[in-house]
Amino acid sequence: MTVWDAGPLAEAAVGGVEESLSGHETRKRAPRAVGIALAVAVLGLIFDQVTKMLAMAQLSPGSRVPLIGDLLSLSLVHNPGAAFSIGSGAAWVFTVIGVLAVAVTIGVAVRLRGIRWGIALGLVLGGAVGNLVDRLMRPPSFGQGHVTDFLAYGDLFIGNIADVLVVSGVALLCLILIPSSRQPDHHERRDVDSERDSPNAQTDMSPARTTRAKGSSR
């Protein structure tokens, strides 16, 4: 199974970061996310490729090795398509999607700061590159390679570590964005506080207000 969910969160991530970086985080600049993302992506890519090589070396196609009963087991397949083997006859389309997903993720990481953003985007990037390597380097041909899957989730589908990385990264992005969307705009809050503390807000002696006050007293 190949999961490409990084693209739809790109605009939301960039929009939410401006609200999350405030106060102390603004005074003390957070590290750029791209460096952390690249480091996490490299580790994820290595883990993904090593597990795929072990699966090909130790498992036979069609066999099934239970890990957690019938819920999770090992079963080696070479998937030419995406999730649930969708698009099996158009592997090159998923190669193009993989390249775009990698480019978008790196572009977002360059614009953001913060360790959390770096880890989340690094997980997505590592998983995307992991499956992209299969598309480019695995048989039957360059750009149309079959993705190595070996993690069978019951009878639903079979995936790999790259898929786990992408799903984990997208979930972490959602957890980061939800609190950011709920935080009030600090600039607006400062403007309200300044108006509330100003002398004019407490004792407004404008002519119109004075006239109304005298009229009401009569």
Rank of each mutant, 00 (worst) to 15 (best):
A13F: 07
P80V: 05
S75Q: 07
G62W: 05
F142H: 14
I46C: 14
R27M: 10
M205L: 12
A55T: 11
H24R: 15
A152I: 01
L76R: 02
V77I: 06
P199Q: 08
R138A: 15
L177I: 14
R64Y: 06
R182L: 15
H24Q: 12
A120E: 05
L136K: 04
L112G: 04
Q58T: 03
L67W: 08
I119P: 02
V108S: 09
V3D: 05
Q144W: 01
G7M: 10
V99F: 10
V17S: 15
G107Y: 13
R27V: 11
G145C: 11
H146N: 14
S20T: 05
V42I: 08
D163S: 04
L21W: 07
A30W: 04
L112M: 06
G169E: 00
L173M: 15
G154H: 05
A30T: 08
I158V: 14
I176F: 02
P207K: 07
V42M: 03
I36W: 00
F47W: 00
G126A: 07
V129K: 01
I106Y: 11
R64C: 05
G16W: 06
S63P: 07
D191F: 10
A120F: 06
E19I: 14
V108L: 14
S88F: 06
D197Y: 07
V50P: 00
V50K: 00
F157C: 10
V34C: 02
D155Q: 13
A82D: 01
W4I: 12
D5G: 14
M1N: 06
S194Q: 11
D163I: 03
G107T: 11
T51H: 03
S141C: 10
L132K: 01
S20K: 10
N200W: 11
I161M: 13
G98M: 06
V17E: 14
R29V: 11
L100P: 00
S73W: 02
G89I: 10
A41K: 02
K214S: 12
P80D: 04
A33W: 00
A101K: 08
I46F: 13
L72F: 04
V167F: 03
V42S: 02
V164I: 05
V166Q: 04
A41C: 11
Q58A: 02
V77T: 02
L151H: 03
L112R: 05
I119T: 09
Q144G: 09
A30N: 10
G122R: 01
F84S: 10
A128L: 05
L165K: 02
T95W: 11
Y153K: 03
P184K: 15
V164C: 08
Q202M: 06
T203G: 08
S73G: 13
S22Q: 08
Q58K: 06
D197L: 14
R182T: 13
E19H: 15
R64Q: 06
R196C: 08
G16C: 13
V167N: 12
S194P: 00
S198Q: 07
G107S: 14
Y153C: 03
L21I: 15
V17W: 13
A208W: 12
L76F: 01
V170N: 03
I97Q: 12
L54G: 11
A57E: 13
I158P: 04
I119C: 05
A90T: 15
L121Y: 00
S206F: 00
W4V: 11
G215M: 14
N79D: 09
L177V: 10
P80M: 08
S180E: 15
T211K: 14
A41P: 01
N200G: 12
D48Y: 00
G107D: 13
